[in-house]
């Protein structure tokens, strides 16, 4: 056996346990889901489920809300955590307490914080109290467009810590020599950040983006705990749609909606992947 073939075999053996597990528990169910989405009951109907889905107003509403949330929350979280990572880095010495503090929101379970959110965001809660003393009208966080804002706030609050840690790791990987070289060339701090830091941490950014998408689905748990199965129309997400159809036993609709959701994400991923390929420096 040639050396290369032997290498291939070893690599394959390393990956084997993972491959088997993934095949059984993830790939096969996904394929089953795709197949089932092409059926209604027992008969094969092709793409009718998808066409029906797009003419369904509730689905369009859910899709719109999910897109708005994704497009707003993910970049926002990325920018905020990046800035905080830069900020923390600018301290020469920092108590590890401060770094740990950011990780605590991730660790706390959802249910315990529901009450806290209710007290803070309620019509007569803390934030409205503050706004009223400043002369602004009461904002009904629970039943208006600002519900989306509240959910975005909770999302950013919860996962900022983890993204900060990832960005800190990525920032530490940028060689100091590049910074010194740029400073010698006369760059000010703003140019340092934009021309040196951001391109160098592109793989980290990609990874943070991935993590954020995963967690943007998990935020559904908070929405469910705060609002139940039928939240108001501004925060009715695709996950609500899928979940409710689960209890309506409408499996064809549920699977076609999930497939559309995953296709949507795959497209975004492809764009980012190609982007990373072009600008990757650490290959």
């Amino acid at each position: 056996m040639t050396r290369k073939r032997k290498d291939y075999l070893t690599a394959f053996l390393f990956v084997l346990p993972s491959l088997i597990g993934i095949a059984i528990f993830y790939v096969v169910p996904y394929i089953i889901c795709i197949i089932k989405s092409l059926y209604i009951g027992q008969e094969f109907v092709g793409l009718i489920n998808y066409i029906q889905l797009f003419s369904n107003n509730t689905f369009i509403l859910a899709l719109k809300n999910t897109v708005i949330f994704t497009v707003v929350a993910i970049p926002l979280l990325m920018i905020i955590s990046f800035l905080i990572a830069l900020f923390l880095n600018s301290f020469k010495k920092i108590l590890s307490f401060f770094r740990s503090a950011f990780l605590i929101p991730v660790v706390v379970p959802v249910a315990s914080l529901i009450c806290v959110w209710q007290v803070v965001f309620d019509d007569y809660g803390a934030i409205n109290g503050l706004l009223n003393t400043l002369g602004i009208d009461t904002v009904e966080f629970f039943s208006s467009e600002f519900s989306m804002g509240m959910i975005i706030f909770i999302y950013v609050w919860k996962y900022c810590g983890f993204c900060v840690i990832l960005f800190t790791a990525g920032l530490a990987n940028v060689p100091k020599s590049l910074y010194e070289g740029a400073k010698l060339d006369g760059a000010n701090s703003f140019q340092l950040v934009t021309k040196v830091t951001i391109p160098m941490i592109t793989p980290t950014t990609f990874f943070v983006f991935l993590i954020e998408i995963i967690y943007s689905f998990k935020i559904f748990r908070e929405v469910f705990a705060l609002f139940g199965n039928y939240p108001n129309e501004h925060i009715y997400f695709l996950q609500n749609f899928i979940n409710n159809n689960y209890y309506n036993l409408n499996y064809p609709r549920l699977s076609s909606a999930s497939i559309i959701l995953s296709v949507f994400i795959i497209i975004i991923l492809l764009v980012f992947f190609i982007f990373e390929r072009k600008h990757s420096f650490s290959e």
Binding site: I22, I24, F25, Y26, V27, V28, P29, Y30, I32, C33, K36, L210, I213, I214, F217, Q239, I242, N243, Y246, Y251, L254, S255, S258, I259, L261, S262, I265, I266, L269
Partner: peptide, 20 residues
């Protein structure tokens, strides 16, 4: 493919997993 499987929503695999 691994990355795609990563972000799969839970409800997609719930019922087929039950069958398996």
């Amino acid at each position: 493919i691994y990355i795609v499987l990563l972000i799969l929503p839970l409800q997609v695999t719930l019922v087929p997993n039950y069958i398996i």
